[in-house]
Amino acid sequence: MDAVYIILTSSLFAISCGLLGCFLILRKMAMVGDAISHAVLPGIVIAFLITGTRDSFEMIIGAALLGILCTFLIEFFNKKAKLQTDAAIGVTFTSLFALGVILISVFAGQVDLDQECVLYGEIAYVPIDLWISDSGQNMGPKALYVSALTLIVNILFIRVGFKQLYLTTFDPAFAATTGISVALWNYLLMGSVSMTTVAAFDSVGAILVVALLVAPPATAYLLTDNFKKMMLITCGIAIIISILGYYLAVLLDGSIAGAVVTVAGILFGLAYLFSPSSGILLKRINQKKEAEKLAMPKV
């Protein structure tokens, strides 16, 4: 049963991250996802200091606010201070992350949070942290509920805002002329990324969330040229890496989250080599065939 809980939780988080990641990588904002997942740290610590618990609603709100602040600062440095995007991202998230690290070390005594757990998470503990209802009934692992709720919220968000998200991703100028607020949808998307990140950080950790945001959608991007299919393939990959990752970790007796991301990396590598549309191997073979065809008549 433990295996099922862990795989299920990790799949649900990976699907949430992957769906948002599809939009991020097409907006060429994969690194913003990276930035947000780090920048939420001070929000988490402050919310923790205020509420004293680790799985609270306030914590998610605190993180979402920090994520939006991070997005805002990146835009600000980029547009107003005319800093290049990568530099703006680099400055913003490292500063916010550093602030979080300082907060943790200053309040180390009061905070049951350490960098290790924030950075790497521990999904193996998912089956231990149970939700016991008031009547004493065991309702199953808490993280499973959090991951399911996160996925529902994300699916609702993408479903309701699909047209707007899609259009502002493909052609923001055109979207703006039709009266869609590009900035609003950007902040909504980044808010969702922040919430998902913080919901997942307990289980998979802040660093590995980044891999879930980027690797499955990037792999799917190589495999199809249809956006809806790209989202479906991303979901499939999310489930595959969760299952294979779990058993790889069991086999190696290592970190589950680490193994999940390793599998994600391997799948990306395979897609890069063998994808029918953009895989380099097939491209090479085709080029060779073409070249041979061209060379034929001369012989």
Binding site: F170, D171, F174, T177, T224, F227, K229
Partner: peptide
Amino acid sequence: YVPQRETVDWDFPT
């Protein structure tokens, strides 16, 4: 409004 063609990413999966 019809923007200049170069303003969008034509590799977009659509």
